[in-house]
Structure formats: C-alpha cells, structure tokens
Simulated assay, not measured.
Amino acid sequence: MQTDEFLEAIQKGNLSKVNQLLETNPALANSKAKDGTSVIVLALYHGQRNIAEAITTEKTKLDIFEASTLGKLDRAKSLIDRNPSLASAYSPDGFALVALTAYLGQKETTEYLIGKGADVNAVARNTTGFTALTGAVANNHTEIAKLLVKRGAQVNYRYEGGFSPLMGASENGNVELVNFLLANGADPNARTGEGKSPMSFAKEKNHVEVVEALKRHGAL
C-alpha cells in the first residue's frame, strides 16, 4: 500500500521519496501511523524536521499536535482559543501534548501550554511513564527542563524501572542540567530497580564533570 511506503520513507528520512509520493498523492499528508500518530509528528519523532515541513505544505489545516510540535504557535493558539481543553490533550500514542513539545524542543509552545493550564507533571498514558521533564531531559533541552522545574515539575519523578531525570541528565553528560537538578532537590543517590544510581550512569559514559558534580552533592 502507498501509505505503508510513505510511512517507511518518513522513518528512513528519505525526503525525495516523500516528495515523490506527495506529488503523486497529496492526500498522504493526512495519513497516520497505525497507532494514530500524524505523519508530521511521526517525522519529528524521527528527527526529520525537513520531512515534517514538506508534508505540512500539503495540509490546509494543522491539528493541535502538529501545530504545537512544529512550533506553529499562532495556529496552536487559534485552536486552543476555540477549545481550551486542547492545552491538556493527549496524543493518540498516549503522550501529554506538553510532554511532546518539551521533548521536541518547543520552549515557547511549552510555556504557552502551561500558561493555558497544561499539567507539567502529566504522565503518559502508555508504558513509558514519560512526563514533560523526562522528555526535555532525554533530548538535552536544558532551558525547557529548567522552565518546567520552575513551574513545578517533579525533579524526583521515577519512571521506567526507577529511572529519574537526574539519571537521564547524568547519562547524557549534561553537567549544566545535572547541577540545576541537584540545586533543585534531585536525589543524587536515587536507585533504579536494578540498583543503578546517577553516579553509575555518569561513570559508565565517562562523564568526568558530571561525576564531580554528583560528588559535591553527596553522591555515593
């Protein structure tokens, strides 16, 4: 089926194939993955911003997930003005909208959604347990993570077997974010179900500066 071919091209980052298929069948821009995810959001999940933008040119109207994750704030505002509950919407694959914008680096949109009542600690309705903070940490969006904590995100939230935001920042070697989380109450000695700590993750990746930062805050 052409839809399957289109989805495969998106996931492989094949822009020329995507454009070719759209030229043949512009309606593919409205297609969705099997879990209901928009092809625009799917492209962003795979780090294919150029493909997401290419698909956007064939759509007359973006939905709230497409507009927000692309950072098309005017469109997102227009939709939320008409239906304020959209600020707290969940995607077809189970993520809070504010978690998606945080994960995909849309700081202005994330801040706007919080201002419109989105819960910074909303937990994914799928097996990941992701929140906006875990999403921002996962993709090293330091300024968004800081914004979320300042707006009440739980720094010691645990998900996926006891993993914490500090563990994520430590594993990524993001010393700025590690220091920020520690200064805002993150537990330096938290353990996963397998007994791993932020220090364990930092040492595994040889992040020397992170190891030193953790030691200064009493990590074992």
Rank of each mutant, 00 (worst) to 15 (best):
F201P: 00
P165L: 11
K146S: 10
A169W: 04
L214V: 10
A183I: 07
T60W: 03
S16R: 13
E204I: 14
L100F: 00
K107T: 13
A124L: 06
N184L: 12
R75Y: 04
K215S: 08
Q20S: 15
G168K: 02
R151Q: 15
N14E: 14
F95Y: 15
M1T: 11
F95E: 11
L70E: 07
K150C: 08
V41Y: 02
S164M: 10
T69M: 04
Q154T: 14
T101I: 10
E58A: 11
F65D: 00
L44V: 12
F130M: 12
S31E: 13
K196H: 11
N14S: 14
L181G: 00
K17G: 01
S78N: 08
N30T: 11
A9M: 02
N140E: 13
G168A: 08
T128A: 02
L21N: 01
Q11G: 10
L22W: 05
Q20Y: 09
N19D: 09
E194Q: 14
N19K: 15
A54I: 13
M199G: 06
A219N: 01
A67Y: 06
L62R: 08
S68W: 05
P92G: 10
E58L: 01
L44K: 01
K203W: 00
A9F: 01
I64K: 03
L73C: 03
V39S: 08
V98H: 00
N184Q: 11
A138I: 04
I40H: 01
S197T: 15
E171S: 14
Q20F: 08
S31M: 10
A29K: 00
T128L: 03
K203D: 00
E209Q: 14
L70Q: 05
E160R: 13
L86C: 07
L182M: 10
G218D: 11
I64Y: 03
L113T: 01
L86S: 02
L28Q: 03
A186P: 02
E160N: 15
L177R: 03
T57E: 13
A213W: 04
H141L: 08
A43E: 07
F201N: 00
A124G: 13
N156I: 11
V98N: 02
F65T: 05
K59C: 03
E143P: 05
Y90E: 11
T24E: 15
D74M: 11
V123D: 05
V149H: 06
A118I: 10
A102T: 08
Y112C: 04
N30E: 15
K146Y: 07
S91E: 06
L182K: 01
I64Q: 07
V18N: 05
D35W: 10
A102H: 05
D4Y: 06
T128E: 04
Y103E: 05
P84Y: 09
K146V: 14
K205C: 04
L79M: 13
A76L: 09
P198Y: 06
N156G: 09
A132Q: 04
R75T: 15
L220C: 02
V175T: 15
T142V: 14
A213Q: 04
F163T: 08
I55N: 00
D35V: 12
G94I: 14
H46E: 13
K17W: 01
S31F: 03
D74Y: 07
G195C: 12
L100A: 00
G218F: 13
N30F: 10
N139G: 02
A124S: 15
G168H: 05
L73D: 06
Y103I: 02
N19S: 06
K61T: 14
F180D: 04
E108H: 09
